[in-house]
Design a protein around this nucleic acid. Sequence first.
DNA 1: AGAGATTTGTCCGTATGTATT
DNA 2: GAATACATACGGACAAATCTC
Lengths: 137, 137
Amino acid sequence: MIDPSADRAVFRQLADLLREQILSGALAPGQALPSETRLTQDYGVSRNTVRQAVAILRGEGLVTTDRPGGTRVRERPERVVIEIDSGTVEARMPTAEERRELDVPEGVPVLLVERDGRTEIYAGDRTVLRVSPGRGN
Amino acid sequence: MIDPSADRAVFRQLADLLREQILSGALAPGQALPSETRLTQDYGVSRNTVRQAVAILRGEGLVTTDRPGGTRVRERPERVVIEIDSGTVEARMPTAEERRELDVPEGVPVLLVERDGRTEIYAGDRTVLRVSPGRGN
DNA sequence: AGAGATTTGTCCGTATGTATT
DNA sequence: GAATACATACGGACAAATCTC
């Protein structure tokens, strides 16, 4: 499965393997990944390497981990639709503080909507913006 | 500066310190951060701890690091304005493949714009969506 | 209550590889 | 070649949170 002599770093290879299982559904949303210790044994790598691999998936928003529950495949949250008919939209990663306020895990960007002189911030994993045709102006 | 006995992890404290310097402009866009070895000496922590701190800032899109040039404060790229008058907009982190194709570094989300049955993908650090009032419908 | 097991978090040290200057 | 700087990988140790018995 993993080739230590390959060009691609071991922890990236492991992340690739786990990502495949998540995207294919072999690891379903809500399901727990094997523990770090278990992955260590299964793939014959050190725990630090396992942690690097899992960190990649966290950064991609594919999994969340809470202590000491473990790491689980993220479930796609319900989307809230926000209607927009004017303004600008940008996306970026939240600061740690914004993450707390919006209650979003790592690997989730935010949407910044500026309209009427105010900037609103929305959690990227719970929001879809619907651009409505301007109502007759 | 850093209190190893504090509640907050040392690498998070270091990330906080560096983030302050970036946001305050003490570390200007394009400017290089001190090398990992240097930070190790300045703050009396191990190199692994320094790397964890820098990884946080990368994840927030504040810095990029290329090997072996070092880590630099990201410059805000020119924004391309995309006009939109209908459709939906979402944001998420790109896969590694999408990152390559769009040529965006870590810590940069993508904007997904669906309109006319097609989904377009834009780099979050180079794109601002302008929602135009529907042109007289 | 308490003890113990499990799991992730944090931190350190060391070694080696790779790319650039 | 040498020096520098980041990347990868291993190992160990202890802490903190949660669950089970």
